[in-house]
Every structure is written in C-alpha cells, then in structure tokens.
C-alpha cells in the first residue's frame, strides 16, 4: 500500500471519502464556466447564423413571401425554376468569371508587392500605407469614384482619346464583359493591400538563414523565390486563395454601383448576389426562389474550397 492510495483507511480508522463524480457544486461550476463564457457567442451564432441558414433551407421549398400568408410547401419547384431561368445562367457565369480572374491576380500580385515593401528601407512605411489605404475606403464610395472615372466622358476614356489610343469611348459601364473587367480592376485595386498584409506576416516567418544558405549554394533571386519564399508562404497563399474565392463569388457592391443597380443592359452583367437581391426585396419579394438561389450559391462556393483543400492535402502528403 502506498501513501497515495486514497482508498485505504486513514490513520484514525475512518475511510477516506472518494470524491463524487460530477455532483459537487465546485465541479459543476467548473464545468459551467466555459459555457458561460461561450454563451453570448453561441447565442449570437444561433440566432444570426445557424437559425437563418436553417430557415433559408426551409424556405427554399416553399412559396414564402415577406409578409407571410398562404405559405405552402412547393417541393422542388423553385429549383426547377432555376434550371429554366436564363438570368441564373448569366449571373452564374459572371460570378464565376469574376472569381476566376480575381483569384490569380489577388493571390500573386499582393505577394509581389509584399516582397517589395518587406525591405526595411527609409520611407517604406509610406508605400505600405499607400498600398493599404484603398482597403479602408468605403466600397460604395470607391465604386462611385471608379464609375465617374470609367464613364464615357470620364478620366479614363478622356485620356485614352487624347492620347489617340481609342477613337470612340469604351463602354466600360454598359458592355457586359467590360463591366466585369472594370469590377475586377476595382476589386483588385481595393484588395491588394489587405492580402499584402497577410503575406507580410507570412514572409516574416520565413527564416533568413534559409535565404542565406540558398545564396551560399549559388541560388539566384528567382531560384530563392521559388525554392524558399514560395514554400514559406504556401499556407498564407492557400488561405488567401480561399478568401478570394469566397469573396469574389459573392461580388455585389462593385457591379451594383457601376451599373446603377441594373446589372447593365438586359441584366447581362448581373451577379448571383444581385439576382438574389432582385428577387428577395420589397413587399412582394419571392423569398422561396431567392432562398433556392442562395442554396445554389452556397453549393457553388463550396466547390473551389474543396478543390483548394484537396490541393493543400496533396501538397502536405
């Protein structure tokens, strides 16, 4: 018998009481405490995230209207309508093209900028600030400024005509793919600084000794970038790719402001979120159909995330 055998009778002959499992007030309080800390966040999540998501799924199978009344289950009718709706095909294509152009630009350009401003040179803080400034500007204000610049009589067309690059103004705000490209330009310009900061943090974790060792082995700047820097920031790059994918598929403000909320002639530059907004707003909004579109949107957002996850796991293997 050892001194630590608590089941053994104590010196006075009285048996030592084994602590009760989970019954005592002290143990209960200890268990409850973490939940009390979590409760506000959980309640918030439940009310503003989980409950609306579940409700959206429910409504997608109904003819729900904002004011209620005569709501009934319609099965897969809303999803069948999606298949027949030309606007959905258009909007889906616009959103995916927007994402496919934004993805490489916003994954690579911020890395190059981060490499430029990473160096500790006099006045480098000015450039870091300059690149980050668009991030803190209001998306609506920025979109309005770009709209003025890209107008037929705006700065861009005016300059291009004065320099004789073009004879007629380019319809940046009225032609489908030019609207998409204009919106991509705005998004990239506004997003560079944000992703640059993430890369700067990641670059700070790449050991200098690795660069020095590679240099001693005769590696040039390009080789050091591909063999040392890129593997060092791979995690950040994947994170940024995921963030860009999700944000780009949900593009709304840029195209909405640039097209005056119309999505261009024929609504041909509408994005998925604009389409959802179009159907869900107002007293007679079609919440059932808008919910079905939201579920489609969610499913489409998940695809690139799964792909990127797959790429990540293969790289780790």
């Amino acid at each position: 018998m050892t001194a630590t055998d608590i089941s053994a009778p104590a010196a006075g002959g009285q048996p030592t009481r084994r602590p009760r499992r989970g019954g005592g007030p002290a143990r209960t309080t200890n268990r409850i405490t973490p939940w009390l800390f979590l409760a506000p966040a959980l309640a918030w999540l439940l009310v503003f995230s989980i409950w609306p998501s579940l409700n959206t799924i429910r409504m997608a199978f109904t003819n729900a209207k904002p004011l209620g009344g005569n709501e009934r289950y319609v099965g897969l009718e809303n999803f069948a309508l999606i298949l027949r709706d030309d606007q959905v095909v258009n909007a889906l294509l616009n959103s995916v093209v927007f994402m496919l152009i934004c993805l490489p630009l916003l994954t690579i350009l911020p890395l190059l900028i981060a490499l430029l401003v990473e160096k500790k040179l006099p006045g480098i803080t000015f450039f870091r600030t300059a690149f980050y400034t668009p991030v803190i500007a209001s998306a609506v204000v920025v979109a309005l400024i770009w709209t003025f610049m890209l107008d037929d009589r705006g700065l861009v067309n005016g300059l291009a005509q004065q320099l004789s690059f073009i004879s007629e103004p380019l319809p940046f705000l009225t032609e489908r793919w030019l609207i998409v490209i204009s919106a991509v330009s705005l998004t990239v310009w506004k997003g560079l600084g944000y992703y640059m900061i993430i890369y700067l943090a990641a670059l700070g974790n790449v050991g200098k000794e690795l660069h020095e060792a590679a240099a001693m082995d005769g590696a040039g700047a390009v080789r050091r970038f591909t063999a040392v820097t890129l593997p060092g920031v791979r995690g950040a790059m994947l994170l940024i790719a995921v963030l860009v994918c999700v944000a780009a598929l949900r593009v709304f403000t840029e195209v909405f402001i640039m097209t005056g909320g119309t999505g261009g002639a024929g609504g041909e530059a509408l994005t998925m979120v604009m389409l959802i907004q179009q159907y869900s707003r107002g007293f007679s909004g079609d919440l059932g159909y808008a919910s079905a579109l939201s579920i489609l949107m969610f499913a489409i957002t998940v695809v690139p995330l799964l792909l990127l996850g797959k790429i990540n796991s293969r790289s780790n293997a």
Binding site: T174, T262, G263, G264, A265, G266, G267, E268, Q278, Y279, R281, G282, F283, S284, G285, D286
Partner: peptide, 20 residues
Amino acid sequence: VNGAMNDYLGQQIALAIRGD
C-alpha cells in the same frame, strides 16, 4: 408591379435601345 418586374422590364428595354 413590383421591383423585380420593373428591373426585368428595364433590362430588356435597355437591350432593345442598345439595338441587340
């Protein structure tokens, strides 16, 4: 006539005015 109807009509009319 609700907002979605006005939007759709406006989009189609814009296509016609552009000559498409």
